[in-house]
Design a protein around this nucleic acid. Structure first.
Lengths: 216, 216
DNA sequence: CCTGAATGGATAGCGGCACTCTCTACTATC
DNA sequence: GATAGTAGAGAGTGCCGCTATCCATTCAGG
């Protein structure tokens, strides 16, 4: 197919597709003449993935490029690849880290037998966690660290489901893509369902009546 | 204190503080003369909250304004206020909704006894969920909907912890703020911990050795 | 009381990002 | 041969979150 049809089938405007091509988010089509190229279903699939990462995952174009690079790398173990993708989809926030928050993260790791991680800034993921706790501290909510353990408890169930989902896929490429999609879209799903759970819980506890003094 | 000290104590540059004042994210200080105003700890607290929402929550200035407005509204029930905050911190994505994904969301609600919600686009939260599932469908991962139930399972534990955390706070204002901080910073914490859980699980299953054929 | 730094208030400018427009030279199609 | 579409590339756009500049005023130190 040519770019026009790719645009029609994906819902992405032609100029945007050209932009993605320039930015390296989409491999070039096969040139049949100096100004004619041919795109296949793989391009369509990739284009939809890019849109999913941008629209739902909220990734920047640069991050998408990193993620795709990690997906496309062929000479690494699956585990390393997953790690690279994790890093790419977890951009650090510009918050400066509070040493006490770093301590909280280290304690958390220690509590769960992970004694390796000494330098929190080493990984985007741990940096993200430390940044979140730092921010919480700065607004006087340092006790939010008490949530870490129950969160882990709930996340064990969730991570198991994620794993089962990813395990459905056969080829390593599909596994990686499932991981990316599952993680990023999963984040959004989690966010939404958590809010629904909050709403339900708050309705139960607070009800429509303003009676906060009830013993539960 | 004056703006210079506010800047020093918060780490936010003076011009940025002025910008926030203009944008209504920060109430004006008490004028003691035509060009002298006095700011108190409440301003500092609010300023830190704004930074937390922007840096960790990733909210736009406009969303922050909405959240603060919801926090500051005085004439609504706590439950309504929480709902307003939820909406404000859940911006809809520009994805167009797949009817099948909408059906998935409705089925999910039906499975859990929530029969009220007919129109998914009514709330930003349900819209977010439907958008995420739509995107998943578009990249060929429609079976991600199977994750909804296990996610809810894990999130029940998490939401309970959230509720306990919020319940520690006395005044309604503190409850609202705890809800905002707990939800937004909690999102980031959840994201990070989930990634750590993934990494751990993938290390266990895949190990450093490329032996995918092991029976678990 | 004088001087230099800081302040409130307002307007304009900047840098980054994700496109979007425009143009040229060409080609497929009717 | 007219028309529509295409590759490729550079410039332009719109928004967002600041940042710079300016002015009249005022505070703080000597």
């Amino acid at each position: 197919m040519r770019v026009g049809e790719l645009a029609k089938r994906s819902g992405v405007p032609v100029p945007t597709i050209k932009y993605y091509l320039r930015e390296g988010l989409l491999p070039a089509g096969v040139l049949t003449s100096p100004n004619q190229a041919h795109y296949d279903d793989e391009h369509l699939r990739r284009l939809r993935l890019v849109r999913a990462l941008v629209d739902v995952g909220g990734l920047s174009i640069a991050s998408v490029r990193e993620v795709l690079a990690a997906i496309d790398t062929r000479d690494e173990s699956l585990h390393n690849k997953l790690g690279a993708v994790q890093e790419a989809i977890s951009q650090p926030s510009p918050v400066e880290l509070d040493p006490l928050a770093i301590k909280d993260v280290q304690d958390f790791f220690a509590r769960h037998g992970q004694t390796e991680c000494v330098d929190v800034t080493e990984s985007n993921v741990t940096h993200m966690l430390a940044a979140a706790l730092s921010s919480a501290r700065s607004v006087g909510h340092d006790s939010i660290k008490e949530l870490l353990d129950p969160y882990l408890e709930g996340l064990k169930i969730i991570a198991r489901a994620d794993l089962d989902y990813v395990a459905q896929h056969r080829s390593p490429d599909d596994v990686i893509e499932a991981m990316v999609v599952g993680t990023l879209i999963g984040d959004t799903v989690l966010k939404a369902v958590r809010r629904l759970a909050h709403a339900q819980v708050s309705a139960e506890v607070l009800g429509d009546v303003p009676a906060p003094g009830r013993a539960d």
